[in-house]
């Protein structure tokens, strides 16, 4: 009975330790100890001496693991560096006119780009059709960056004291009362224009210069202007952390799903059922419009998320 309980307890502790590790802080081994390290134990303290022996044992185990970890890290590093160096030696000379990247790829893009992607804007056709996987990586990098910033800077019950909470509450009250009249009047004029212009740039990504990244930046700056001029409380009426999470992850998922469809059909020589349309129309060039919208949403949310997290620590 006691054994069972022990096993159960150990399992629980393992799971708890895992949870604590995910949360970034363990009870027995804090990442950032708040208290200064304890003074050295004197020889006369018997109880404490025993404790130091046990902790020293743990320390030795940790050290052994640590040395293995270090050796593995060095080996893996050396292996990766060797592979990369060998690959670099195999590559054709940089900048020489006979390179396949200079001739064949460019010719293919320029000559068959419009026909194959249906996008008048050749850059959009390149980054969202031929190299859509790369763009997916870029959007994921943005999403990951804002996730990491959220983990580090987001204020919640665990990392704020009561005084700080009072301070932020007071800031909110001040924001609510002291509206700068010049800023709010101009913001009322500019925010709708900026949002509409951003949407225009996103939707015209495959026709004219622009696209998801630039249009998303414009929309994000409109959101930032709203947060600056009207305060975080009014912002939270239509844009909270929950909406941020839902919108961004949905956009990334839609991107992944739609591009996976075209990869699947393309790799298996199946016919894609998405019409390319007439080049130059808004509803043309297949998936590029959808991908542009997804990228725009991710970029806009990321821009605003960075601003809000770095200034206020909340979304």
């Amino acid at each position: 009975m006691s054994k069972m309980a022990k096993i159960k307890k150990e399992k629980q502790t393992a799971w708890q330790r895992f949870c604590a590790w995910v949360n970034g802080d363990t009870a027995d081994r804090p990442l950032m100890p708040a208290d200064p390290p304890a003074p050295r134990k004197t020889k006369t303290d018997k109880n404490k001496k025993q404790k130091t022996v046990s902790s020293r044992k743990e320390g030795i185990e940790l050290n052994r693991f640590g040395s293995i970890y270090r050796i593995c890290a060095v080996l893996i590093g050396v292996a990766v560096v060797t592979v990369l160096m060998v690959t670099v030696l195999q590559l054709p000379l940089f900048g020489s006119p006979d390179n396949p990247a200079v001739n064949e790829v460019v010719e293919r893009y320029v000559e068959k780009g419009l026909e194959e992607t249906g996008a008048v804007n050749m850059v959009a056709g390149m980054i969202l059709d031929y190299r859509a996987f790369d763009t997916f990586g870029e959007s994921s990098v943005l999403f990951l960056a804002v996730t990491c910033v959220t983990m580090l800077l987001m204020r919640d019950k665990n990392n704020t004291s009561k005084d700080e909470d009072l301070l932020t509450a007071r800031e909110h009250v001040i924001e609510g009362y002291e509206e700068d009249i010049i800023l709010t009047k101009i913001a009322r004029l500019l925010i709708p224009c900026a949002l509409v212009y951003g949407i225009y740039v996103v939707l015209n990504g495959h026709i004219s210069p622009g696209g998801g990244f630039s249009g998303g930046t414009i929309m994000g700056s409109a959101l930032i202007l709203f947060a600056v001029s009207f305060g975080m409380i009014r912002m939270s009426r239509f844009f909270t952390y929950a909406t941020f999470k839902k919108v961004t992850s949905c956009a990334l998922l839609v991107y992944a799903a739609s591009k996976a469809y075209s990869f699947f059909t393309g790799a298996n020589h199946l016919e894609s059922h998405i019409p390319l349309g007439t080049p130059g129309a808004i509803l043309s060039s297949g998936l590029i419009l959808i991908l542009d919208i997804c990228v725009g949403i991710v970029v806009a949310c990321t821009m605003y998320g960075f601003y809000a997290l770095f200034t206020k620590g909340e979304l």
Partner: peptide, 8 residues
């Protein structure tokens, strides 16, 4: 519209 407001 934007520049004088930011200066202000």
């Amino acid at each position: 519209m934007a520049s004088p407001v930011s200066s202000h």
